[in-house]
Nucleic acid binder design. Structure first.
Length: 1039
RNA sequence: GCCAGAGUGGCGGAACUGGCAGACGCACGGGUUUCAAAAACCCGCGGGCCGCAAGGCCCAUGGGGGUUCAAGUCCCCCCUCUGGCACCA
């Protein structure tokens, strides 16, 4: 035989790439109503880093999407497959990701719909910002100032109060404030959980999301609280899952920074609490500890006065900063009570518990039991008691059922994050003022357009300087960056709105009444909003030039000038100054040494100055700007002294768990805590922590402020949503998906999107590692393979033996284009599909690519051979063919492309079988095979198609349908079991009646022999399947 | 610690609602071809036992119990690993 012909992929690909009809991408049709677009496949946006990557995870998603889309294409549909590149994600910058993505798509012959969407394009993030504003106006997004501890040496950040010195470099820890924007989703939790059931979520994803949301059902109990010698009462709401234990509550713990502390703290205890806080911060206090506040609460059940203490134990979820302590039934509280000599009162009795001679509990009882010491509820079982207690307290008006969610907020923007700027302005007079819609986008300054820069937005003075859209006074732009998820979370809508790049009514920047004074004029990119290639004028503001503190900061343990974060403000706008009368942090210089991190800790986003005092301060205040650095007209004022200390002194104490300050309070941070009322999402946040029981009003009011624009209202949006198949990245955490689902709900509620659930089906595609498996895991092989093959494994031959150590040099340096160049695009596609089940991570390497290439060669040969000789089609061939159709179709739709490929391979194997004549495959069979092949290996398929002389368009050739009759042939083999063991088989008509199957089975020689003289006790016949014979147990002679 | 998921040949992995375990691929062994090698092609390939052979039997889906005519699949206990949560989103 001649040397076996091989598939000349290079030549074929070149030919088809050159062909004008081969342009792989397409646009949404102009007229939606005529279009056959019915199917929407959405590969999750991803960062697309530039340069050699050892990771083809995105390509895997794209190929999977493309393969599924091609299948639909054969079903007379033009599926929509947008490609979105998330440039803001923390990927190494240094190029135009969108361009590289385009190249890659072309290489792999992936069809996309429309242009590659880049989240970093101002035309895109204009709407990210717009959505952000909608969230803000609806009262869901609010700004919070948060304390963090940061290492003064390496900049690493830690939770406030958690450490005494840097875990990584032992450097000194100092407090710093950071601003963050959070979205309150507590009102959406219930629906987010419920609607999981309806969707086609893989079990794992569903559980993950539920887990992240962390729904806890319980009750809220309000306690009257007061200072020691005062009669004035305030209210404290405590969440608990065990109301029935209310009679056992002997004290109350609150977070050391809980706002209620302010209300109840007795002057006599002020020092104690302050010291306690400080000791906690330094790690000098154990977790199980507490300090008295001198405040008391009234137990509504038995009207006893119980002390209020501050303790970190109060912040353990699901509690949100206050717990009613029942020490008798909680180990930690038990220990605390013992230490502080607080009373312990048994309320759940069980004889199994340990009691001392006076029948007092000897250790906390955690199990079940009946209520005791509980007034009229005594001796009720816990379950019953709970309902009764709720009933009682409810009548007293101090208890209601409540649901909490562990994740009730989403981080939407933060200081130092590289992302679209938060489109608001901070004005001394008006507070937080949204940038008007028509001024969107608020573009990134040029030095930040291409990638993150140390110090972030706040470092750009020109950016920060602005004027208040409301009053026209000088103001400062918010310097926080919006997190990547918010951009990608609406990208599936963007892809259906091709016009969104251009002018959109209501959004064009240069509207008549535009108020944008000096701040704008210097900003080059401002003028050209649209698709914007922000001509980056080579970093006009090198980071070094700004902020002298940065230079002095790195290792100085000396507190630098307090709060350098104000250096970004123009000197004449002293917006966030704190009353200079404030006790200037006198007490505590250490707290003030906020400073920038010179080097970024690897895992934290770039972090900058900026961030201001909470609460737009009273206008009369002025903190001196010492004007350290007079670059241009902008002189950074000196920071307002005593940010934190002053705040504390004024009593503006962080309401959230220990470490955050709300600027516009999120509901659950109001002193009362949050009643996360089920049905009503989107309570107004405005007005600080005022109780929003009149939700309707709040909502209406908010609605008034929402945008009247409907930019997302193209014809394709209702036609194609929800997305039919979303292909998520393996790296997506459940919380990320949750965020997208939340946003979808929000957009639906506000009338911007027709669907609340964005995805009909969700597939996850795991990571792809390029190259050979990481290393030889040494512990693995020695035990078993010691003698045989392990010894013989030849390490030398071209990366073969998987455990054989490093593959031959020269083989391995790889990239997508190199692989595609050596083995062809189809082979790479197959690698990505065949590598394993989508959710799992796979590897792609030269060896695997070659295997796929070999498979393509085998196809090539068979098809050439049969094109010459094929004449007829046998029944055997038909059955094989239809089984292949059935398997490929079903497996591909099921999201298991690797088994679909296996079905193709199986068929090819059948063709190669000796028993299969070269003549046995007619033209139709070949057509069918090629069509089935084409979603997986489009180049080869197209070449074969042309070689067959077919002239119709392969891409839209109708997908074959498997005939049931042939998939399940009329004659089949029935296994026969005797006593549960496979003993014989017989060929019989598939639909033979059970009775006949039974009798024919019993008549078989082999079965008669096995049965012998024993009695047939039972025969189980499964029609279409098998016969199972049960014999009576042997007569008991050898028993 | 809490919650969830997964453990199948030497490897990646198949197996629809309980119904012939190991599809497909790799690796490995033998053979054909070749001066030789690569490539290609053919045969074999979970383990053990009986048999010259055809063939047959037994054991095998982390371990141990159970339900069933029948268990990788369902139930209980245990072991191991992974993921999520708990200190961050």
């Amino acid at each position: 035989m001649d040397p076996q012909p091989t598939y000349p992929f290079a030549e074929v690909e070149a030919r088809w790439r050159r062909s004008p009809s081969a342009r792989p991408d397409r646009d949404l049709p102009a007229d939606a109503s005529k279009a056959a677009v019915k199917h929407y496949i959405y590969p999750w946006p991803a960062p697309f880093s530039v340069g050699g990557r050892a990771d083809l995870s995105i390509e895997r998603r794209w190929v999977l999407a493309d393969t599924l889309a091609r299948l639909q294409g054969h079903r007379a549909q033009a599926p929509v497959v947008p490609i979105v590149v998330d440039g803001f994600a923390p990927a190494p910058p240094g190029g135009r990701p969108a361009d590289r993505a385009r190249e890659c798509l072309e290489t792999l012959e992936i069809r996309r719909t429309g242009e590659v969407v880049d989240t970093t394009a101002p035309a895109f993030y204009r709407f990210t910002q717009w959505i952000f504003l909608e969230l803000h106006l609806k009262g869901l997004a609010a700004r919070i100032l948060k304390r963090v501890d940061a290492c003064t040496r390496c900049g690493r950040k830690y939770r406030f109060g958690s450490l005494a010195s840097c875990r990584a470099c032992q450097g000194e820890i100092s407090e710093r404030r950071e601003s963050e924007w959070w979205i309150d989703i507590s009102g959406y939790g219930e629906r987010l959980v419920q609607d999981l059931e309806g969707g086609q979520w893989p079990r794992e994803e569903m559980l993950g999301q539920k887990d992240v949301l962390g729904r806890v059902r319980g009750s809220e109990v309000s306690f009257q609280v007061s200072r020691l010698f005062e009669d004035e009462y305030a209210e404290l709401v405590v969440f608990t899952t065990h109301v029935e234990r209310i009679f056992g509550v002997t004290f109350i713990l609150v977070d050391p920074y809980h706002p209620i502390v302010e209300a109840v703290l007795d002057p006599a205890y002020e020092d104690d609490v302050a010291r306690y806080r400080e000791r906690l911060r330094k790690g000098a206090e154990p977790r199980i500890s507490a300090a008295r506040t001198g405040g008391f609460a009234l137990n509504p059940a038995n009207l006893r006065r119980i002390p209020i203490l501050v303790s970190p134990l109060a912040s353990v979820p699901p509690s949100d900063g206050a717990v009613m302590a029942v020490p008798a039934h909680d180990p930690e509280l038990w220990e605390l009570a013992k230490r502080l000599k607080l009373p312990i009162r048994e309320v759940i009795h069980n004889d199994k518990a340990k009691f001392d001679s006076q029948s007092r509990l000897e250790e906390p009882w955690l199990g079940d039991g009946v209520l005791t010491n509980s007034g009229s509820f005594t001796s009720l079982p816990v379950r019953v008691g709970r309902d009764r207690v709720i009933g009682l307290l409810n009548r007293k008006g101090c208890c209601q059922r409540a649901t909490r969610f562990r994740r009730s907020r989403l981080l939407a923007a933060a200081q130092g994050v590289w992302g679209p700027p938060v489109p608001v302005v901070h004005c001394k007079r008006c507070g937080i003022v949204p940038v008007p819609e028509h001024e969107l986008p608020v573009e990134l300054p040029p030095e930040l357009a291409a990638g993150p820069v140390e110090g972030g937005l706040a470092a750009s003075k020109r950016f920060v300087r602005a004027s208040c859209p409301a009053c026209g006074e000088a103001a400062a732009r918010d310097a926080d960056g919006i997190l990547p998820w918010l951009g990608t979370a609406w990208a599936y809508l963007r892809a259906l709105l091709p016009g969104l790049d251009g002018p959109v009514e209501g959004f064009q920047g240069q509207a008549p009444g535009e108020v944008r004074p000096e701040a704008t004029s210097s900003d080059a990119t401002r003028e050209a909003p649209a698709p914007a290639t922000p001509a980056v004028p080579a970093r006009e503001a090198p980071p070094e030039e700004r902020a002298p503190e940065a230079a002095q900061a790195p290792d100085s343990s000396v507190p630098s000038s307090p709060a350098p974060h104000l250096d970004v403000l123009p000197e004449d706008i002293d917006i966030f100054a704190v009353p200079s009368a404030a006790p200037a942090a006198a007490g505590d210089p250490a707290q003030e040494s906020a400073q920038e991190s010179a080097e970024e800790p690897a895992e934290e986003p770039a972090e900058g100055p900026g961030g201001e005092e909470e609460r737009p301060a009273e206008p009369d205040a002025a903190a001196g700007g010492s004007g350290e650095e007079g670059e241009g007209p902008v002189a950074p004022p000196e920071a307002a002294p005593g940010g934190e200390a002053a705040a504390v002194a004024r009593g503006a104490i962080e309401p959230d768990l220990a470490s955050t300050t709300v600027e516009e309070a999120l509901p659950q941070q109001s002193p009362r805590g949050t009643p996360a009322k089920e049905p009503g999402p989107a309570k107004g946040l405005e007005g600080g922590g005022e109780e929003a029981d009149d939700e309707d009003d709040g909502e209406e009011e908010a609605a008034d402020r929402l945008s009247s624009l409907r930019p997302f209202s193209g014809p394709f949006v209702p036609a194609l949503l929800p997305v039919d198949t979303a292909i998520g990245a393996g790296s997506l955490r459940p919380g990320d998906i949750l965020a997208v689902r939340f946003l979808a709900r929000f957009l639906q509620e506000t009338g911007h999107s027709p669907v609340a659930e964005p995805f009909r089906r969700y597939l996850r595609a795991g990571a792809v590692q390029v190259g050979p498996p990481p290393a030889v895991p040494p512990p693995k092989s020695p035990a078993k393979g010691a003698a045989g093959p392990a010894e013989k494994a030849r390490p030398g031959d071209g990366g073969r033996g998987p455990p054989g150590g490093a593959p031959a040099a020269g083989e391995e340096p790889r990239s997508l284009s190199e692989l595609a160049g050596r083995f062809g695009a189809d082979a790479v596609r197959l690698c990505l599909l065949f590598g394993g089940p989508p959710p799992r991570p796979i590897a792609v390497d030269v060896h695997r690519a070659r295997c796929m290439q070999r498979f393509l060669d085998r196809i090539w040969r068979q098809m050439l051979l049969r094109r010459e000789r094929g004449r007829y089609v046998s029944r055997r061939m038909l059955v094989e063919k239809h089984q292949m159709i059935h398997r490929v179709t079903e497996r591909l739709q099921a999201g298991k492309p690797h088994t679909a490929v296996a079905a193709l391979m199986r068929f090819v194997r059948f063709l190669e079988d000796r028993e299969t004549a070269p003549e046995d495959m007619d033209r139709f069979a070949m057509r069918t095979f090629i069509i089935l092949l084409s979603p997986f290996a489009p180049f080869l398929a197209r070449e074969l198609w042309a070689a067959m002389g077919e002239t119709d368009d392969l891409a839209t050739a109708p997908w074959p349908v498997a005939s049931d009759e042939l998939v399940h042939p009329p004659e089949r083999e029935f296994p026969i079991f005797v006593d549960g063991r496979l003993r014989d088989r017989m060929q019989q008509p598939a639909s033979l009646e059970p009775e006949k199957l039974e009798s024919r089975a019993l008549q078989r020689d082999r079965i008669r022999e096995l049965v012998g003289s024993r009695r047939v006790e039972r025969v189980v016949v499964v029609p279409q399947r098998l016969v199972s014979i049960v014999l009576a147990t042997e007569p008991p002679r050898q028993g």
